[in-house]
Design a protein around this nucleic acid. Structure first.
Length: 557
RNA sequence: UGGCCUAUGGUGUAACUGGCAACACGUCUGUUUUUGGUACAGAAGAGUCUAGGUUCGAGCCCUAGUAGGCCAACCA
């Protein structure tokens, strides 16, 4: 098919211009550099799609690199989860890298910087260093240790490395400019001493490099051509370039850092720190709780990789702040599921319907699996005298806008017969216990009879009571009650938690669902898309509601 | 009160080296439909933060202002 010429985002434009300039296509190389201190979220999905998408577009390698320079927060569990998510999204990395693989090289370079007078060991407390940092409007002051001799610096740094000095006693700092208008350049810390076990290097190191002194160097080591990160790193670019200039020479291939705005999703948060808070405070059950905006949460909720990639593609990449409405994400998953999800019947809030003129016994009716997919075929579903229908699908009397069951009016039972409401049975409080109706035996769906072709205004879904399977249904709603929970200056985002983000109910589903397996996706007709949760068993089926169907009736109310 | 980034319909992105603002979502109307879903047809909705300037012509360039964001972890 013809593809309209798609406009390039600013990142792609940069690459196109580089390609016209001094870069060759063979030199292009990208990386996705997560820190393994939490699970990946929808914002990372954008970054993944950007970097790996660029890799596919230019046939360039993309490394998966773990930015594991902080052993306090990082764990192997997160490494594993991150890899699973990237694989699930359908991307292949070239090399699996770790910043910790470069610790020795980084150390050697640091010694070189010391020897060339570009770094020094500072023996002040972090508070003292912070004091001397100045403010955005006031220049910083130089450390009294700034002009230590090279030999003393080398000696101290080695002791730091060997753990012969106490934690926190010294740091290694780059010697740049304490008066720079860019505070990042005011003698940034390159190394801290930390006598902590690292999830990969164990006890090998007693000092750990800071982000700035690891990230660009990792890019350099891997010959990454373009290093994309979020906007808050923009002021770091100057330092990124400074460090690389100290370890490279003119013939070297120099990576280029560029920044884009992180993607924010409405009614949720995209901050690993805050997501961790939700997990630790048991607001949600886990990182992959279907209410979480994590990739694993969406996966468990029933989202597909292609829906997430479509979403990332649709929202694009730019430099301004943004809050993308969840309705766009929901559109993407509905669009995908509409094409692939088999249609089934399930009743979430049942009320008993008795067909008074239907004989005892059962019959198995044909119904199509997916009207959007002509190859999906049909299946049999059981029909009998006593059914469940949705409680909200009946009103004793209603106005003409109500297309559903009322007394005296006809509606169709999907794939079955046309029925007419006759009477209701109530308890002493007026609650409806049963609805009695009659059916037209000649109106059987698909029979082609004149009666079956009669136009009725409504069609209801249903299940046969004696055949239906009881199932646990988990209805999810947005986690926060406001679009931007972390934008309020006074209130904490925790104050906006939606108390009804999860509702667990018991529903009844058609018997064909008995053998459904984990992650299988279905459309419960007229209700929404559901998938089998990983906690589901054959004795206790559990469905997660991925998203409701669009509902133009609800809007009228 | 320093430096830097950003500013286009309700939301998100476009508009190639300046040439009467486009696409998607959302909203609203209809048509079709054994899902009030889907599909299809159509509509409303911004004159591009403000004020100057350059130009035959500016959303795109320049200046100033305004608004929002980022920067003072031994986090990333």
């Amino acid at each position: 098919m013809s593809e309209g010429k798609k406009s390039l985002n600013f990142i792609e434009q940069i690459i196109e211009e580089d390609l016209k300039g001094s870069y060759t296509e063979q030199e292009l190389k990208f990386r996705f550099p997560p820190e393994p201190n939490g699970y990946l979220h929808i914002g990372h999905a954008s970054s993944i799609c950007l970097n790996f998408g660029l890799g596919e577009r230019y046939n360039a390698p993309v490394n998966l690199r773990f930015d594991d320079t902080n052993p306090i927060k990082e764990e192997q569990e997160y490494v594993d989860a991150i890899k699973e998510d990237v694989v699930w999204l359908g991307f292949k990395w070239d090399k699996e890298c770790y910043a910790s693989d470069y610790f020795q090289q980084l150390y050697d370079w640091a010694v070189e910087l010391i020897k060339s007078g570009n770094a020094y060991v500072d023996s002040q407390s972090s508070a003292e260093i912070a004091d001397q940092k100045g403010t955005p409007t006031v220049p910083g002051a130089e450390s009294p240790y700034r002009n230590r001799s090279v030999s003393e610096n080398v000696e101290l740094f080695e002791k730091m490395k060997n753990g012969e000095t106490p934690e926190g006693a010294h740091v290694l700092r780059a010697k740049i400019d304490m008066t720079s208008s860019n505070m990042i350049m005011r003698d940034p810390v390159m190394y801290r001493s930390l006598h902590k076990k690292h999830h990969r290097t164990g006890d090998d190191w007693k000092i750990y490099p800071m982000y700035d002194w690891a990230h660009g160097e990792s890019d350099f080591i891997e010959s990454v051509s373009h290093s994309f990160c979020t906007l808050e790193f923009l002021p770091h670019r100057e330092l990124y370039n400074w460090f690389i200039s100290k370890i490279s020479n003119n013939e070297d291939f120099i990576p280029k850092q560029r920044e884009f705005a992180r993607r924010n999703l409405s009614h949720t948060i995209v901050s690993k720190r805050k997501l961790l808070q939700l997990v630790e405070n048991k607001v949600v059950n886990s990182w992959d709780d279907p209410r979480m905006p994590t990739i694993s949460g969406f996966r468990r909720r029933g989202y597909t990789p292609s829906s997430i990639k479509k979403f990332a593609d649709t929202i694009g990449i730019a430099k301004r702040e943004n809050i993308i409405d969840v309705s766009l994400l929901e559109f993407c998953i509905r669009e995908d599921l509409n094409k692939i999800a088999p249609r089934v019947m399930g009743v979430l809030d049942p009320v008993k319907l008795v067909i008074t003129n239907y004989e005892d016994g059962e019959e198995w009716l044909d119904t199509e699996n997916n009207p959007e997919d002509e190859n999906a075929g049909t299946r049999k579903i059981p029909f009998s005298k006593e059914l469940y229908i949705e409680r909200e699908d009946f009103k004793e009397e209603a106005n003409r806008k109500f297309f559903r069951l009322t007394l005296g009016k006809e509606v169709r039972l999907k794939s079955a017969y046309i029925i007419k409401g006759e009477s209701v049975v109530k308890d002493e409080n007026g609650n409806i216990l049963e609805i009695h109706c009659t059916y037209d035996p000649k109106s059987k769906s698909g029979s082609g009879s004149e009666e079956s072709l009669r136009k009725v205004k409504g069609t209801l879904h249903w299940v046969s009571i004696s055949h239906a399977i009881k199932a646990e249904i988990r209805l999810y709603d947005r986690l926060f009650t406001v679009a931007a929970p972390d934008a309020d200056k006074e209130k904490d985002f925790m104050d906006f938690i939606n108390p009804d983000s999860l509702q667990v109910i018991t529903g009844y589903v058609e018997p064909s669902l008995k053998d459904a397996s984990v992650a299988d996706k279905f459309q419960f007709q007229r209700i929404g898309y559901f998938c089998i949760d990983k906690e589901s068993t054959s004795e206790n089926l559990i469905f997660n509601r991925t998203v409701t169907l669009r509902d133009s009736w609800e809007k009228l109310n």
